[in-house]
Simulated scan of single mutants.
Amino acid sequence: MPNRKLNPSSIVNIEDLRTMAERRVPRSVFDYLDGGADAEVTLAENCRAFRETTFRPRGGVAVYNCKTTVSVLGYEIAFPAILAPVSYIRLMHADGEAGVARAAGQAGTIYTLPTISGHKLEDVKAASTGPLWYQVYLIGGRQAAEGAIDRARRAGYSALVLTLDTPLAGKRERDPRNGMKELLAPALLPKARFLPNILAHPRWLASFLLDGGVPKLGNVVVPGKGPMDLVDVGAALSHAGASWEDLRWIREMWPGPIVAKGLLTGDDARRAVDEGAQAVVVSNHGGRQLDCVSAPLHALPEVVEAVGGQVEVLMDGGVRRGSDIAKAICLGARAVLIGRAYAYGLAAAGEAGVARAIQILKDDLDLTLTLLGCASIDQLDATYLGAAHRR
């Protein structure tokens, strides 16, 4: 499917991309991207936490061309937003992970390639002009993970992201209702009752078929069996949870930085520091794992205090606007990770949609800094927030 040109006057925020994505992909694919666990309480809370956090701008300050660059694990990026790992993304658009990597590199930021990727990690690296991180799941067992980590090292990935909040996949109730598992299955019969919705998206279907249908997991090569099928991922995740012990053995074989992702407490963040992580991501997996847990924005100050500046603190979950990025920075994050925001763009218009999502957030952040009277992202702190967030 060729990328459609996006009219900036009609796509002014991330919600516009979400609306377009909902029209352009089958319900099963959209709801996989859009949905959360159980009653989706945490999914909603992630965004609400940002909406309920207020600013205290500085009056009588005229600043323009605000500085948004920041250094993360030794790399200077254009603004403090890194593209998070989002699985199954090649189902949303044939550009897939390679298109996302190209858009991230052109925008001057980092893309984190998921284990559950439709493109091989070497191909994604070749497509990118910027730094890449590789996210680690232990699906397929340690040998499969070791093989992928070694490939990532040889390909030039700069950091590993170990996800610690997924001992198994959360109960995402939209998926069984809309046939996500059936879409991935090779047999046609299970898809029968979902075919009307699939056929209602002929452009997506044509692109999906021309792209070869459901791809193999080229980054999960199980010894003696070869690349894993996407349909087998759910079962594989049920016994692939990463532990602190796993972080230790990965530390021994990986020469670069390790990012511990999926922490919500100061105690866990301290443990990550003790086990050798160079950064932590305050995250509840976008509300897709355990429902009714804290929004990362609320958990962020505890984690920042617990690590005491020994490692870099990142956060993800609910970021839809540049002002959200600014609020996270005010509370001590070095940068945020964005997931759904750019994935909506990919589903809407491929690589061009990802580029538009990034530009929306970057422009919005620059405007926020200007209106706050803050000349540089590194000057943000809790004094720019309402009384509830000032110590």
Rank of each mutant, 00 (worst) to 15 (best):
A185Y: 07
A81M: 04
A159Q: 15
Y134W: 10
V124Y: 00
E122Y: 15
R177W: 03
T115R: 04
L132T: 15
I89K: 14
T69I: 08
Y157R: 13
A84W: 05
G59W: 02
E182V: 13
M92W: 05
E173Y: 14
A84Q: 06
T115V: 04
P131L: 05
Y88T: 00
L189N: 12
G141H: 12
R172V: 04
D165A: 02
P131V: 10
A81H: 05
M92G: 07
S128N: 12
Q135F: 01
A126P: 12
T129V: 10
A148Q: 00
R172S: 02
G179Q: 02
S71K: 12
I82Y: 01
P85R: 08
L121C: 05
Q106W: 14
A107S: 09
L188C: 08
Y137K: 06
L160P: 07
S71H: 10
A84E: 06
L188H: 14
G99Y: 00
V161D: 07
A187C: 14
A107R: 07
G179S: 05
G156H: 15
A81W: 00
N65R: 13
L113I: 13
G140V: 02
P85K: 11
E173D: 13
T109S: 10
V63I: 00
L164I: 09
G147Y: 14
A126H: 15
L73P: 05
L113S: 08
H93A: 00
L162Q: 08
F55H: 02
A155H: 10
P85E: 03
P176S: 12
E76P: 07
G141W: 05
G105M: 01
T112P: 08
A98I: 07
V61Y: 00
L132Q: 10
V136R: 15
L138K: 12
P176W: 09
A78H: 14
G118C: 05
T163V: 11
G99F: 00
V161S: 13
T109N: 08
R56Q: 03
Y157H: 11
R153D: 06
I82M: 08
Y134C: 03
K67L: 05
E173W: 09
V61P: 00
A101K: 04
V86I: 09
L91M: 04
Y157F: 08
Q106R: 14
V70Y: 01
P114I: 02
G105A: 03
A62M: 07
A152H: 07
G140M: 02
Y64C: 11
Y111K: 08
L138D: 03
R102T: 09
I110C: 09
K125R: 13
A78Q: 13
A81G: 12
P186E: 05
E76M: 13
S128D: 09
A81P: 11
A159K: 15
Y137E: 10
R56M: 01
I139V: 10
G105W: 03
D95L: 02
P186S: 08
S128V: 11
E97H: 04
T109Y: 03
I139G: 00
L188M: 13
Y64S: 14
T112Q: 11
R151Q: 11
A145W: 05
A155F: 15
Y137M: 04
T166P: 02
D95R: 03
R58G: 00
L164S: 11
V136Q: 11
A84N: 15
